[in-house]
Design a protein around this nucleic acid. Structure first.
Lengths: 242, 242
DNA sequence: TTAATAGTGTCTTTAAGACAGTATGTC
DNA sequence: GACATACTGTCTTAAAGACACTATTAA
């Protein structure tokens, strides 16, 4: 399919190529992470028809519906799942004349975190791709693998000094679940002692009074305290440094 | 790049132009910081003619000259000063339908740090605007004040756990100069003890053997060690928290 | 000598980390 | 009771910070 005509905001002399670009192809791409049932980090993609390379949810700005770039990004998510994002952040904007054969293109990349969701909340064509060794297990279309890695880098970094780990968990979770988030994303985790100290020595979590039972001592279930202002910590964990 | 087939999610009435935007007005804006001779943080702007609101260096992508967005950003800097950036980073991309009366527009914002430079390296029309109370002392055109503040937020944060302070200083500087960078940017500074420990207990700096003389004990002049890999620290200073 | 800033010694504080030990459930 | 995982106690370590002290120059 050929691209629609480009609206030119400056007159172009017919014998000259474009000297100054007011515009370029713009897309807003989304890297949505969840913790899969297989205990792997997964990224949301769209595959249609089957056996084609999956691609990240992405799209154009729709000026009638989107007031800002965030709207566009959120709309991409809504096209694939009803599961709302618990965290949302812009990662980077990549623009050059090589990514798209048609010339200059520009992609604004966002990433979001989701709570583990049931498969029913997925639209047809939506698939979760495992992240294995820091990369999508199935190679994505275009340069989407690279976009995932940009988002991964940010995520890997930010979980080490913020409350982010909690945003990948169900509403009720244990401290071990937090430790597990580190293992899944970084392949190593801080000691429980450190996690306990950090997350309990502030007002971030509140005890639900419930326990999770297994064939062992039950674990306290926590939920995030909505009143809490705590979000960033002053130090990195040293055990999880890359 | 992600050129999925363009789907129109709403029918298009014939008298309305675009429903799905492949494009929007794009500009690349630059927030260039330096430490002024008046010991204030300054931001580079462009004012012509005089008595009009100054604006940040900004421009369009020139597809013949720019291979990527960074090229465009760097070109904006070169138009106003020959002083090369010591640090360069993308801050944010802002896009919505309100900033520009013509409709949807998109701005990719970069910020750079410069070493204190002589006025001769400035092109005509270029001016340094003092930052006072976290804002440009003279109100800038468009939403450029906001863009400066986005960059300031990043800068304020990042100097607290990185080698950034050094990038605003001349090639040779003292430890007190580093402390002064904190005072200028955050209005408070960590104690010298902490700065010494952090910057000297790693391979970041090397003693030039030279001293800076005044009417007091001379201060050791350091320069950055080009071999050093150190760039980020594990902790924030607590004395400079916002 | 004094003023002024550079730099050191040392104790406190804070939070991470190591690691051994205790607690509490299921089977 | 065995087991598995949850949780605690306590000592160590690393780096920030407080603060008093010494050092070195110009004038």
């Amino acid at each position: 399919m050929s691209p629609p005509p480009i609206k030119r905001h400056q007159p172009i002399k017919s014998h000259q190529p474009i000297k100054s670009l007011n515009t370029a192809l713009i897309s807003v791409d989304l890297v949505a992470f969840q913790l899969g049932e297989n205990n792997r980090l997964q990224v949301l993609a769209h595959q249609s028809p089957e056996n084609t390379p999956p691609q990240l949810p992405a799209g154009r700005i729709e000026p009638e519906r989107d007031h800002c770039l965030e709207d566009t990004a959120k709309r991409q998510l809504g096209r694939l799942t009803a599961n709302p994002a618990t965290y949302f952040e812009q990662v980077i904007t990549i623009g050059d004349n090589q990514r798209d054969s048609r010339g200059w293109s520009l992609t604004v990349v966002y990433y979001v975190l989701l709570r583990p969701g049931n498969e029913q909340s997925l639209q047809t064509g939506a698939v979760w791709i495992d992240i294995v060794n820091g990369q999508p297990a199935i190679t994505l279309a275009y340069d989407h693998n690279q976009l995932v890695m940009e988002a991964m880098d940010r995520l890997k970094n930010k979980i080490q000094y913020s409350a982010l780990p909690v945003y990948l968990l169900p509403t009720e979770f244990t401290l071990s679940d937090i430790q597990n988030v580190f293992s899944v994303i970084l392949d190593k985790a801080p000691p429980m002692r450190s996690i306990r100290n950090r997350f309990l020595n502030c007002d971030l979590l509140e005890d639900t009074g419930k326990k999770r039972y297994g064939s062992n001592r039950p674990a306290t279930l926590y939920q995030t305290n909505r009143q809490s202002e705590t979000w960033l910590f002053d130090r990195l964990y040293l055990t999880t440094k890359v």
